[in-house]
Each structure stands twice: as C-alpha cells, then as structure tokens.
Simulated assay, not measured.
Amino acid sequence: MTVAAKPISDQTATIEKSQVQVIARAAAIMRALEDTTTGLSLGEIALKVGLARSTVQRIVAALETEKLVVAASPAGRVRLGPTILRLAGSVRTDFATIAKPFLVELSKELHETVDLASIKGDHLVFIDQVIGSQRLRTVSAVGEAFPLYCTANGKAYLAQLDDAQIETLIGKIYKARTPSTLTKLSQLLDDIRAARRDGYAIDREEHALGICAAGVAMRDMLGNYVAISVPVPTQRFESERANICARLLATKRVLEDRFSTVNT
C-alpha cells in the first residue's frame, strides 16, 4: 500500500506552525525570568511555563547562544541576559520617538508641561518631558522615580489593576509626602475607582505641595504600561482641569491607535 505524500504547501504550513510555537515558548520562558534577579532553574521554569524540562533545556540552550539568557549560578540557574537590555533600550527609544510629537502637541494645546513615564515595579520612571510655555510651570528630571500611590500617572496605572493586585504591589499603608497624601489603601481605592470610571487620575498636591496633576495610562506596542501626566501649579489647576483631562484622553486614544498600527 502506498501512502500519498503531503502536499508541499501543507508541509510548509506545518513547519511554520512549529517555528511559531518555538518562538512563543521562548517568549514564555523569557517572561518567566522577567521578575527574578537570582534566576530560575530549568525545573522551575518548566513549572512556570507548563513545558517539559527537556523542552525548556533545548530552548534555553538556544537563548544562551544569543545571550538572551545567561547563567545566574554554578548550579544551573539562568536569568535574562545582556542582549535583552540592548533590545529593550532600542524599544524604549522607539516608543519615545513615536510618542514625542503627540506630547509636543498636547503641551502646545495646554501651554503646560507634559511628562511621559514607564512603570517599574511600585514606582514610575520619567522617560521624557515637554516643558510648558507658562512662566510658572513644573519641571521634573528625566530618569527620576516617583511612587505610584501619590502621583496622577501612578494612580492611572494602578486603576488598570484590580484591588487585590494593588494591595500586593504597594501594600496598605504609605508614606505621607504632603498633608494631602492618601496614606491608606482604603482612601486610595476611592480615587482608583474614580479613575477607572473617568479614564484619568488626579493628584491633588499629594506628591508635592503647590502642584496638582492629571494622568492617563495605556499599553505601548509591546504591551507594557506607560503613563502620561500634566503637572500644573495648584493655583490654576481647577480652572483648567476639565480641558486638561479632555485633551489627555484624546491624546491617549490617538497614541493607542498609533501603537496598534505599529503592531500590524
């Protein structure tokens, strides 16, 4: 009895499917290593990603060849490698480049400073800024880290999480930065619920006296959360608040459309 050979097109499709599966598994392994500084053993990785240890071993060996993962200990633990840092730096630059014209336009419309931040654990880090044209304006240093619980952009990010995730990330009690800082989770959750409803979060002199802010959060083209905020001297914030929040939401929608276009 003869068995008909698979058509070439079917063979090609099978090979491509297998290649895509390997890439997906490699990505899952790297995500499993994302939040560990001491690395994981092959067995620990296998448990996290739901793959056989032998499969993990083959993929990790290939990732090590490209320095996407490196040895973390003599006992065989591995962690993310230097190639990841180089690639991540390139992506951050690309993201900031894409966002920059929209930040500039928003600053021109509002005549206020506009900040762009990425999320790093329980803090956010400013990665770009467009300084406003107002004589009295706010300025923060790019690279500076701020807490999530007392900043508009931080609270906008927290609004993307559920209440249990927020408690796990930042706990229940927080340091008072000003007399207006919300220092208990129960107080903060009231603001978070409002941010979920409205699409933006507000800082009412909670991080620094004399400064209020509005902020929004979104995912970039890689699915990482980023946040945009507009800090404003308190004396003119309330009169400008509605316009600031409306323009922030409009900018968020445009950027989300742009990120989805980049992904296609």
Rank of each mutant, 00 (worst) to 15 (best):
A61N: 10
A61T: 11
L63P: 00
L63N: 04
L63I: 03
E64Y: 00
E66N: 06
E66F: 09
K67Y: 09
L68Q: 08
L68W: 15
L68D: 07
L68P: 01
V69C: 11
V69T: 15
V70F: 01
A71C: 00
S73G: 07
S73W: 06
A75M: 15
V78S: 04
R79N: 04
R79T: 10
R79S: 06
R79C: 04
G81Q: 02
T83H: 02
I84W: 01
R86L: 14
A88R: 13
A88G: 01
G89I: 02
V91K: 07
V91T: 05
T93H: 07
T93Q: 11
D94V: 13
D94T: 12
F95A: 10
A96E: 08
A96S: 09
A96K: 09
T97S: 10
T97R: 10
I98A: 06
I98C: 01
A99W: 02
P101C: 10
L103S: 00
L103P: 00
E105Q: 11
E109F: 02
L110N: 04
E112L: 10
E112S: 05
L116E: 05
S118K: 13
S118F: 08
G121C: 05
D122S: 14
H123G: 00
L124R: 08
V125E: 13
F126T: 03
F126N: 05
I127H: 00
I127W: 00
I127K: 01
Q129V: 12
Q129K: 15
Q129T: 13
V130G: 03
I131N: 05
I131F: 03
I131V: 14
G132P: 03
S133T: 15
S133Q: 13
R135C: 08
L136I: 12
V139T: 14
V139G: 02
S140G: 07
A141S: 10
A141I: 14
V142P: 01
C150V: 13
C150I: 08
C150S: 15
T151I: 10
T151L: 07
A152F: 08
N153T: 12
N153V: 08
G154R: 08
G154S: 04
G154W: 05
A156G: 05
L158R: 02
Q160K: 14
Q160S: 12
Q165A: 14
I166H: 05
I166G: 07
E167R: 14
T168A: 15
L169E: 03
I170V: 15
K172W: 11
Y174C: 11
K175D: 08
K175H: 12
A176R: 11
A176W: 03
R177S: 09
R177T: 06
P179W: 06
P179E: 11
P179L: 09
S180Q: 13
L182K: 14
T183V: 15
L185P: 01
S186N: 12
Q187T: 10
Q187Y: 07
Q187I: 09
L188C: 00
L189P: 00
D190K: 12
I192Q: 07
I192P: 07
A194E: 09
A195G: 02
R196E: 08
R196L: 03
R197C: 03
D198L: 12
Y200C: 03
Y200R: 02
I202E: 15
R204W: 09
R204P: 01
R204Y: 09
